[in-house]
Design a binder for these strands. Structure first.
Lengths: 203, 203
DNA sequence: CAAATGTAATGAACAGTGTTCATTAATTGC
DNA sequence: GCAATTAATGAACACTGTTCATTACATTTG
């Protein structure tokens, strides 16, 4: 059965080619501006072919989202290594914000873009869940040691995530222009804000 | 000059008709799903007519954004009336989150949707600026009385706005599904989280 | 009042989108 | 070598925002 094996392999290779090309184009031009036709053109196939491997454009988005969550988790593991729970929490915060600042299109696609939530719910639970779990673990160390003014673990996780996401997403949508700050100062402001926030809820 | 007066009047009436119809449809179906053709059909004019009054679809969005900021400011003025600075701050937080929960499409259009930022910057400064100023004023009362653990006024404003926006927008994008909470419990969770957050940064 | 002017509205046309599906091409199994 | 299966195609469909030559109407002028 060497033939069916090869076919299987070719099929997954093709799927991977489409996935990788789509991801590259999503990150360069954004999800909305990347058309199925342009992806097809990039891999030198006809538009219809993509639909033999992916149900629709959204499914392609879900694939990339999955990869993206994996990337974020890796960043967490790489950047948040301190043995001090509070310092580790600060590292997570910094890592999250830097990730959003350095990968705007990726961040958009993970947390801001509107996409019909079909399979989405499961994909987010499976992939995003790991990232969230990292934060929860980290916070659990802080809360169980009574280092924070927040006592409900999951609520605290939600709050910290919301704050970081709020900072990143308001910036990505240029809503911080109402504060009269120079463009180049913003990354530091966001990081500083997050740190001051964590300091404020630290006992 | 009665004729030119009437023409002027008809022109502004027509513009208002388009603006109002667009807003209604944006709120019902969302910005993306509302087409120029469908707006034109709703007011029984041809698609081209809309372009005699608005440069493009984005300009229509800006108009609605302006109105929306006005609405939010009114909600602030109506809901946040306490003479106690801290209670007033809590009222602002509650009002913001409830606004987002009760007007999801409007909130989307104000803070989440992607739109080319051309005139946008000025519109946001002018309209959104008033809402932000309300929060800043409110926070100024708290900080000047030394009631909060946050000392930098503008940074504190940014933080509180980010937290509230984070809560609302993550919910709007169904990202809170990774926390296993029943749908109907979420509004209370968001409000409670915001309140506990404010409590945590209160001295 | 009739003709000329100005202007508001039209709707076909353009270039693009996601998606489908009958047709074609290639490969495999017998 | 031939039939059957599978993969790829690309035209077609129904949409999108936007433009612009054409038309219809209201107003002003002769």
């Amino acid at each position: 059965m060497g033939v069916t094996d090869r076919k299987e392999r070719e099929k997954t290779e093709m799927k991977e080619l489409i996935r990788a090309t789509a991801m590259k184009m999503f990150l360069e031009d954004g999800y909305a501006k990347t058309s199925i036709r342009s992806i097809a053109e990039a891999i030198e196939y006809s538009p219809g072919t993509i639909y033999l491997y992916f149900k629709d454009k959204d499914e392609l988005l879900y694939e990339v989202q999955g990869k993206a969550y994996g990337q974020l988790l890796e960043v967490f593991k790489r950047e948040a290594t301190s043995t001090d729970p509070l310092e580790k929490l600060r590292q997570v915060g910094r890592a999250y914000i830097n990730f959003g600042l350095q990968n705007p299109e990726l961040y958009d696609l993970m947390f801001i873009i509107r996409a019909p939530m079909n399979v989405d719910e499961e994909i987010h639970k499976a992939n995003g869940g790991n990232c969230f779990a990292f934060l929860v673990d980290c916070l659990n160390d802080c809360i169980s040691r009574n280092l924070l003014r927040l006592t409900d673990l999951h609520q605290a996780s939600l709050l910290i995530w919301s704050t970081a996401h709020g900072l990143v997403s308001l910036n990505l949508r240029c809503r911080l222009k109402i504060m009269d700050q120079p463009e180049e100062a913003i990354p530091e402001i966001l990081i500083k804000s997050m740190e001051d926030y964590l300091a404020a809820v630290t006992i």
